[in-house]
Amino acid sequence: MNRSHWASLGLVCVGLLSLLARSEAQAPNAQAALQKPTPNAKSAAHTEGIHWLTSFEKAKQKALRENKPVLLFQLFGKLDEALC
């Protein structure tokens, strides 16, 4: 291996080390972001999956078109908010 090869290998190592150092520095924030509950984390469980409408009138119109009954959920607060 000649000198230029060693130089190239050295540069690659330095680059990898700097990348590693940067990712370690960012890791706590990334981990915190993963663990930090979003304000609507709870509501996401409520609203994900079910195709909710927020207007009873529109729900009735859609139900008429699709020949389905309406399931109306009356609640305190808003379903798409964290505390409801």
Binding site: W52, T54, K58, V70, L72, F73, Q74, F76, L83
Partner: peptide
């Protein structure tokens, strides 16, 4: 069903 929610009052 066609699902719909509405607020009765603030919680």
């Amino acid at each position: 069903f066609v699902a719909c929610w509405e607020t009765v009052r603030p919680v």
